[in-house]
Design a binder for these strands. Structure first.
Length: 404
DNA sequence: TCTGGGGTCCTAGGACCC
DNA sequence: TCTGGGGTCCTAGGACCC
């Protein structure tokens, strides 16, 4: 989807069309009173002058999405709000409305699934589609179906998307970047050398800042240069799995299937504080946040019908270093108090002298509620001390109090 | 006044088991 | 005079993606 978060807001505020708008930030920047006085229906008539500007923004957020007009100023996703404000102080800033975003996400995905049911989720605004078997899918090299999908999505949502058509997911993803917004790009196997090899290695989905930097140090900038390297050399540099994957990617080879269903691996909640907090000096505040995170994780598990056996915490210190601790229990739970106790055990094992910027709670080793393995869980005797504490913790809490 | 939140996957080491 | 080999599970950290 093109500039998804921003485009959804532009549906409500069409008067902002063509203007630099950014979505993101930690606090609500649209005045609630303004919304209340104008009412949902009249939102489109709020004068542009009344919208909050980036220069007035205070907080620790990052940009989630920038409209194409805002991108002209050098603003992009994941950029800190303060930096963006320096680049374009007059840009309008709106908060993320997650409920609305999720609603549109479901809408565009269900629209696609009606046409091409073999669809894989790739986050909130992206999917892979295997339309090998869709009637008419091969017409005009796939362009006809791509047009049909674009039209259907626009009719249902009023939003545009960009589509890449290729023999596999790797190439399709790259192709989808070629003609944005509202474009269709078709890449054949034979186009590898002309269309793919001139691109920077960072355009490969899976080569991020670190691998990109390392390749640059090896004097490799383009995908073509990467393709010219020896497989064994890449394996020696990046490890067995990554090295082999990298050379295949450079040659456009990817046989991974489009996966329509998958079970979640973990569920987590985390929050960055408005100011850095200290475990001892801000104990009450931190404790309340910690408990709330546990309650949110528990609610997420229960709402989605899962139970977890491993609970973990995540800390980000004021210097941005991250620490994580995990604890596996002998039994599964989705209970807020049990999770709170487990997370508390984790907290005891992590250094707390330094001020904290972020705290998170994570549940993993998930299974569907009611489908827990029946045989007894073997405890890792390596951490028998910890494990014992976990056993006692769990024993003190009923497994599914909210359902019983 | 730098730098969100929710995920997945991989690696490497230690403990333990047979 | 040296001390297996394979496998699983757990943990911590890190890269990467949307």
């Amino acid at each position: 989807m093109d500039a998804f978060f921003a485009s959804v807001e532009l549906l409500r505020y069409p008067q902002l069309k063509g203007l630099p708008v950014v979505i993101g930030g930690g606090r609500r920047t649209v005045d609630e009173a303004l919304l209340a006085s104008h009412g949902e229906r009249a939102l489109r008539f709020i004068p542009v002058a009344e919208f909050p500007r980036l220069k007035d923004y205070v907080g620790r957020g990052v940009i989630t999405t920038a409209t194409y007009a805002a991108r002209q100023f050098g603003i992009g996703s994941a950029m800190g709000m303060m930096k963006a404000a320096r680049l374009c102080p007059q840009a309008i800033v709106l908060p993320v409305d997650f409920d609305e975003i999720r609603r549109f996400s479901r809408l565009f995905k269900s629209t696609i699934a009606e046409v091409a049911p073999l669809m894989q989720d790739r986050g909130i605004d992206e999917v892979y589609i295997d339309f090998t078997e869709v009637p008419g899918g091969q017409r005009d090299g796939g362009r006809a179906l791509a047009r049909l999908i674009q039209r259907a999505i626009f009719e249902k949502t009023g939003l545009t998307c960009s589509i890449g058509v290729a023999p596999n997911k790797l190439l399709a993803k790259m192709a989808s970047e070629f003609d944005k917004p509202n474009g269709i790009s078709i890449v054949h196997e034979a186009d590898l050398q002309t269309l793919i090899w001139p691109l920077n290695v960072r355009k490969i989905n899976g080569i991020g800042p670190k691998a990109g930097e390392k390749l640059a140090r090896l004097n490799v900038q383009t995908i073509g240069e990467l393709a010219a390297l020896d497989r064994q050399f890449l394996i020696s540099q990046f490890g067995k799995a990554s090295g082999a994957w990298m050379i295949d990617a450079a040659w456009g080879r990817d046989d991974s299937p489009v996966v329509t269903e998958s079970e979640p691996v973990s569920m987590s909640r985390e929050t960055t504080f408005e100011r850095d907090l200290h475990a001892a000096r801000d104990k009450a505040e931190l404790g309340a946040i910690f408990t709330r995170l546990c309650e949110q994780v528990a609610a997420d598990l229960q709402r989605k019908g899962y139970v977890a056996r491993t609970i973990g915490i995540k800390l980000r210190y004021d210097d941005f270093r991250i620490a994580t601790r995990d604890q596996t229990a002998p039994a599964y739970t989705a209970d807020a108090q049990a999770i709170r106790k487990m997370a508390g055990l984790c907290l005891k094992r992590v250094p707390l002298e330094q001020r904290l910027r972020l705290l998170g709670v994570r549940a993993s080793a998930l299974v569907k509620a009611g489908e827990e393995p029946i045989h007894e869980q073997k405890m890792p005797s390596a951490q028998s001390g910890r494990a014992q504490a976990a056993i006692e913790t769990i024993a003190n809490y009923p497994l599914f109090p909210s359902w019983s």
